[in-house]
Design a protein around this nucleic acid. Sequence first.
RNA 1: GCGGAAGUGGCGGAAUUGGUAGACGCGCUGGACUUAGGAUCCAGUGGAGAAAUCCGUGGGGGUUCGAGUCCCCCCUUUCGCACCA
Length: 817
Amino acid sequence: MNPTPSDEPIGYDPSAVEGKWQQSWQERDTNTTDVASAPDPYYALMMFPYPSAEGLHVGNLFAFVGNDIYGRFQRLQGHNVFEPFGYDAFGIHSENYALKVGKHPMDLIPQNIANFERQVQRSGLMVDWTKKLSTTDPDYYKWTQWVFLQLLKQGLAYKKQAAVNWCPSCKTVLANEQVVGGACERCDTPVEQRFLSQWFFRISDYAQRLLSNLDGLDWSETTKTAQRNWIGRSDGAEISFPVKKNASGDVIRVFTTRPDTVFGATYLVVAPEHPMVATLTGGVNKSAVDQYLARSAKQDVVTRKSSTEKTGVFTGAYATNPATGKDIPIWISDYVLMEYGTGAIMAVPGHDERDFEFAKVFGLPIVRVVCAEGEEPSAPLNEAFTENERGIIVNSGKFDGMTVATAKREIVRMLEEKGAGHPVVNYRLHDWCISRQRYWGPPIPIIYCDDHGAVPVPEKDLPVVLPYVEDFKPDDSGVSPLARHEDWYRVPCPECGKMARRETDVSDTFLDSAWYFLRYPSVGIDEVPFDSSITKKWLPVDSYIGGNEHAVLHLLYSRFVTMVLHDMGYIEFEEPFKRFRAHGLIIRNGAKMSKSRGNVVIPDHYIEKWGADAFRTYLMFLGPFEEGGDFRDASISGVKRFLDRLWASVHSAVDSQPMNSVGDPGVMRKLHQTIKKVGDDISRLSYNTAVAAMMEYMNALRRGERSPSRVEVEPLVQLVSPFAPHIAEELWEKLGHKESVFNAGWPVFDQALAADERIELPVQVNGKTRGKLSVPRDITQDDAVAAALAEESISKFLGGPAKKIIFVPGRLLNLVG
RNA sequence: GCGGAAGUGGCGGAAUUGGUAGACGCGCUGGACUUAGGAUCCAGUGGAGAAAUCCGUGGGGGUUCGAGUCCCCCCUUUCGCACCA
């Protein structure tokens, strides 16, 4: 006789079990991957974290566990899984924090990493710790500097004086991507404009390739969309407007996506920073223009980009509209941006909202050149008519009557014949500014020599080590703190040996993370950044999981760097991540977790109380992995109860039953259905439903106080192992196995055992469910109808004979009266 | 403004192709065991109704034998981008 469940000791002590197995994994190298000779490599990568001083929070853990489950599942499928871990520890975030607490980042970061690592280890990830990296390690950033030199070699790194975003609080330049709504992404301070000499990467050269390749990637659709929008391809034309005033043959080139409206271009507008402003401006207008330029130069970027109020000034000059032959005035306004297109536009107030507004403010002519069907060409415009789907061209000479699409093509052809225009594709994507006037980053490996200019540091001299300096605080000078350390920056020129000066700026953290996935498998190899045969074996990354906040920046930069290294012949692939899935965000009380809200959850005490296994499983159970969910500690107990019942079931099965016990047919059917479902669900990261399926099976195992037998419960240990690895190992051992459960493979799914021979067939009358019939799975339509009509509770809804019968074999019967 | 995602019980959420709406868990209710239970186990649990039955997936239309799922309009929330010509 089996003991009744209520007499069993229920519940187990997670900390003892988890400590035991974490130690065992370490001693037995269970999680170490043989990168050199693994026969069936699978690279399961997660985005490496910034090791903050607060430590790991549940948002990090949610992502790591999601990846870990996927990696462990792939291992159970027979792959040699490589799951590395590292730290993205350079950057403003670390540095600002170090300043705040009055410590040096070189002292602080190792402490943070140690704390972080303790937490990560405690959560039971299948990480190969022999391949750990930190971007702040000279052995790593040596190669980050090498990457910079490769881009330089390819002509893809260049220095230019440019208007850059300057955060007066962080005292550094920000990339366009780090400016959110005109303010610093990090501290919300309004960003100012400064003119500094900066290093840029020519990512815009790769815009089309970065865009086209997206189609072939197995990535979350939302991420691909974000990248497409960021790259921002727009098809249009460049049109030249000869300047009337001077005889030197100057032309103003404009970019437009609406060449079909060129007959309605009644004035031109150039950006205040446009190089031709000075030559255009004459006599009486000069003082007004100077005033306007001074005003907009002073204005911070926030106000300029956020206010839609139109301001501007007339230059006094005119240009000729190549379509109409008429002279039109040239204005200056800050609603035209120098960084997009040519920095000049043709204004078509009839068909562009911004131009319309501007024309209204300054009383400029508004001409209609597009009509809706049935509308009079002379109909006045009370607002810009921008609907181009149904638009018909009017007041445009021989082009009248054409659709917008046709006119676009024909008018560009006409302009081309006149030499006044040609089709052009423009991208929103700008070159990547990588200079940072800060301390905490890899020094850019350049030496400035009076005779030889900017000389790259020879590769043999890498790394250019970031020196330990006490005063690493940035100042308002616009140069890095390293520029205050002459003993560091005074070095001989590599070309001629004459005293020269190091570049004192450091590079953007996004450069650190743009290639780390290439390094992981080759960690420990000092001669090269990534060994070619190991790289060929492990890359591109098979599965990459990370946050959608990096949908644009990190993922785009990584793709760019990978393409460049591919073009240089270092690697054989040009896309680094075959498959990418963005995980969701864990929120708390309906709000995003943040320090300012004080709702950040640190996992430590949850793990202490419930165990890592229960906590991991709970995180995966609280909502769809790709959407995230609300963290509420209320329902952890349900998951722990599930693990307790698993524990009790295995113990009772092993302790009180013979080895050759047989399973109940109904339970075994459910088991095989569960094996199938859990495997399918994990494959598509539907972890919450996988957990639900296992719980459902557990309910079936113990329904009516039955004691499950060994064959019923043993495979469940394997199914649960990706989620709750420690208890799975313990129970696997209890079941008599000597090897790790992660070397045991996935339970074999038997289709025949999973099939139900009888099913509950829902019967509808006129589309409303009126009953269920227990019938053989392969029942014929006639038999099903007969059985349905025999049921008084069903047939009573059907007045007479059924006029129509819809029968979906095995699924449903619908009788239409 | 543009683009994406989403609105389902008291709560978190299921429903892979149009086919039993509410799996699984929390909570709640009842019971068992117990000196006790905020432990454990079993069972029940969308709403209304004594029942038959009716009503139910943000709101309103539509397609269909059948709609949470498809189409049109509207409302709400949320995340990106935003004077990009």
